[in-house]
Design a binder for these strands. Structure first.
Length: 111
DNA sequence: CCCGTGACGGGGG
DNA sequence: CCCCCCGCCACGG
């Protein structure tokens, strides 16, 4: 009924994103999946896009399923996204997160 | 109103 | 580490 889903979709995305632990990362698809819309990974990306206005949304901790910083171009500077990650101890080489499997955080693990 | 275009992901050739 | 198609849906032209 009421909750069609998209009404709060962005809010839900932000809630999950805020739970990503310091120094860990997750993927657009993983967030979409835990929200029950595995096919809406693109919308998660759009939500990150809109999160520039909202505070406390660590958009830099969200990458694609391969650990690539596909959204780095939306962070203004040349490598602001990478900088933010490396400040947390996340190694990035050529836009690729190193040791991705180990620092990957799956939102569904919170359940 | 139709259409191209994505911070995506899965599947197929 | 090629190629293409599909589903998803918000936004701008």
């Amino acid at each position: 009924m009421t909750l069609a889903g998209n009404e709060n979709f962005f809010e839900r995305v932000y809630e999950v994103a805020r739970k990503i632990p310091y120094g860990r990362v997750t993927s657009y698809g993983a967030i979409a999946r835990v929200l029950g819309s595995p096919q809406s990974a693109r919308m998660v990306g759009w939500a990150m896009n809109a999160s520039k206005n909202i505070e406390d949304v660590p958009a830099h901790r969200v990458v694609n399923r391969n650990g690539l910083l596909t959204g780095k171009s939306h962070f203004g500077g040349t490598n602001a996204m990478q900088q933010l990650l490396e400040e947390e101890g996340v190694k990035v080489v050529e836009g690729q997160i190193q040791n991705f499997q180990d620092i990957f955080w799956d939102p569904s693990d919170e359940l």
